[in-house]
Design a binder for these strands. Structure first.
Lengths: 205, 205
DNA sequence: TCACGATTGGCACGCAGTGCCACCTATGGC
DNA sequence: GCCATAGGTGGCACTGCGTGCCAATCGTGA
């Protein structure tokens, strides 16, 4: 019994239980989100979430490893899509340009649903307890993307190869964050445009 | 009564109490560090730290806002020094080069005391509870450095100016982290050299 | 109908952090 | 010397998160 959802080892085998489990998870996240919007993240207790979702506190912890997981869940999903996009870019493309292109799907998705994305962004920066989750997301995306970036960099040996790919990946993610922050602060701006400006300010696209 | 140490509003007025308070804080941090090395961060309880330092649990929380603070303390200090170095660089220097130079002091200091720095780095990456602290440090450094970086960038207007400075600062910090990570993983490497490689891989120095 | 596994909920922990209050101690005025 | 005051200290109780354990329950198949 894990809290990771449908077993990742057998992706094709979605049993009836897995579907039910997924539905329950979605419902809990929906209830929790409403409470977060009303009372904030810290101001909402697990007991309240469990009650709103119609389950006991103990059962809640069988579906989610913790309260943070409710927020983290949404963030980590996009990482896979970025990695897929990056892998699909032509091999001739530079790492920086490929990363910019790989971010496009996430950025567009975010801009299409500002009513969902903006409150989330605000909450992530407002609530101190959630700052760890942001780093966690960043870390996982970094882990996912770094090997793909390595392939697009001139060959190096030893620690030099590692550090370059990590630096490029981390910088790109920093640009993404900067763009998202600016977009959150300045309503009416275009997120893809901000991302272009951010990444162009660091290295030529 | 705060937990921020000597009152920041009157930096010159170090009363006798402030000195005593500082000494106690140092001693608690020393005791805590020994326990962290032995049992890990999560494996050490506040009660153990308080007992080792010869005070009650309640009193501990009057000196530190929480257990994380014991680790965070050491990290945030360096931020001021980086900001000072950056402000002291010639105005003609590019933002990227100035940032590289501003990191030098911290990087050299870290390399001079690997026996202290390495376990800290390892702990920061190993303990999930400390990941939030890392982000917190990063965030504060970012806040400190961004305005200084803005001055070294070509003029922009509105959100464009903000996002560029934030992106450049964030990228530089990402390079620093990448270099520190590689240095932690590969004993015997030169941290300043790794930082050069990291930053050069993103933008020309 | 029975047996089996999975889910659930309740209970009791341990740990972090906080508010409140009583105690002690150092300092200064009388 | 005596007392008043302020600040440090410790104890107690409380909320909240997260976990281990166990009994009750539900669904499924034999």
């Amino acid at each position: 019994m894990t809290t990771d959802g449908p077993s990742a080892t057998t992706p094709g085998a979605m049993t009836l239980r897995d579907h039910a489990r997924g539905a329950v998870r979605d419902e809990v996240m929906r209830c929790a989100w409403l409470l977060f919007l009303e009372h904030g993240f810290e101001g909402t207790t697990v007991d309240q979430i469990a009650e709103a979702a119609g389950m006991s506190r103990r059962t809640f912890f069988r579906y989610f490893a913790g309260k943070e997981q409710l927020v983290l869940e949404r963030l980590v999903e996009s990482g896979r899509s970025i990695a897929d996009e990056l892998a699909a870019r032509p091999a001739s493309e530079s790492a920086w340009s490929a990363l910019r292109a790989a971010f496009q799907a996430v950025v567009v998705l975010q801009e299409q649903h500002p009513d969902q994305a903006r409150p989330l962004m605000v909450m992530l920066r407002t609530e101190p307890a959630l700052r760890g989750s942001v780093l966690e997301r960043r870390r996982r995306w970094h882990e996912l993307l770094t090997p793909l970036v390595t392939a697009r960099l001139p060959r190096g040996r030893g620690a030099a190869a590692d550090v370059r790919a990590a630096a490029v990946t981390g910088s790109a993610l920093a640009c993404l964050e900067a763009a998202q922050d600016a977009w959150t602060d300045h309503p009416g701006t275009s997120l893809p445009r901000l991302l272009d400006q951010a990444m162009a300010a660091v290295a030529p696209l």
